[in-house]
Amino acid sequence: MFATQTFLNLPHKRQQQIINTAVEEFALKEYESASLSAIVQKLALAKGSFYRYFKNKEHLYRYLLSYVVDFRLEKEKEWLQPPAKDFFALLTERFKAEIRFDLAYPGFSSFLHNVAQEKNSDELGNIQEYLTASMMKPLIPAIEEQIKLGHIRKDIPATLMAFQVLQVQQNLYNYLAFVYKMDSRKNVRRKKKAFSLPEEDIQQAAAGFALLLKNGLLAPGKKK
């Protein structure tokens, strides 16, 4: 929608070069201060050629956001273990998949973090709302199913629970970044992974955050 057919007709490798270069710019800077000129220069493109791919900076930004969100959801789906009967075991797996994504794709992760911090603007509107709704979309049906099965409480709307799960998921990364003193922007500049964590540390942190949610979401009468 936001990319022209000319861009979509480019070879996959060239598309990825443009996407990765543009994501890096928006991962390091807020939307207003990000520069199309810097992106074009890194790509060794004439500015006129760039406008054959995207109408303006806003269209580029919105295309990147849609691309990165879809890419992240697909990757997390790949990394999830077979569906668990226990909802909180499933949450633990989701949290682990989210951390794996952040570790493997620091540029994409930092870009999404920057989007989450953007203020409402005349140009972008409430871009945070789009990001939140996109990330909540796969959570809501899973929560509704668990409510029907009687595994989690039914007196709180599924949308509210999904929102809370998403906030906890985001805070898990912030927690690990704090504990391991990670500088995400420095890693993006160096084109390095965020940090390396033993699988058991990821498991422990993910299980801990899922447990914190469990006491609030568990249906009355269920064993803790």
Rank of each mutant, 00 (worst) to 15 (best):
A97Q: 04
Q17D: 15
G48P: 10
E78D: 14
Y51W: 10
G107D: 03
G125H: 09
V115E: 01
H113A: 14
S35H: 09
E24L: 04
E129D: 13
F71T: 05
H59F: 12
A104R: 11
L60A: 04
L124A: 06
I18P: 01
A116C: 06
A34L: 12
A104L: 15
K77E: 04
Q16R: 14
S66M: 00
D70W: 02
G125S: 07
F87S: 09
V40P: 05
V69R: 00
L80F: 07
S49D: 08
P83M: 12
E93R: 07
F88G: 02
S110Q: 15
Q16G: 08
L124Y: 03
L60P: 03
A84D: 14
G125D: 11
N126K: 10
K57H: 10
S121D: 06
F111V: 00
R100M: 13
F101R: 01
F71K: 15
E58P: 03
Y53H: 14
P83C: 13
V68Y: 03
K85V: 03
R14A: 10
E30G: 15
E24K: 15
P82C: 13
S33G: 05
I19M: 13
Q17E: 15
E58F: 02
G48Y: 09
L45T: 03
N20F: 01
E118I: 05
K29G: 02
I39E: 01
E98N: 14
L112F: 05
K47P: 14
A44D: 15
Y51N: 09
R100D: 05
A34T: 11
F111T: 02
K47G: 10
F108L: 10
A46C: 09
Y31R: 10
I99V: 15
K75P: 04
K42F: 00
Q81K: 15
E93V: 04
H59Q: 11
A46L: 12
L45H: 07
E30C: 09
L131F: 06
L45V: 11
S121W: 06
A97L: 06
N20E: 13
L73N: 01
I19A: 02
K75G: 01
Y130S: 03
I99A: 00
V40D: 04
F101K: 02
A104W: 04
L80R: 07
S110V: 08
N114M: 14
F71C: 08
Q41P: 01
L103S: 04
K119A: 15
A104M: 09
Q81T: 13
I18R: 01
V68D: 06
E32W: 08
Y51I: 03
K57M: 11
I127L: 02
R72Q: 14
L65Y: 03
Q16I: 10
S35M: 08
Y63H: 10
V23F: 03
P83F: 13
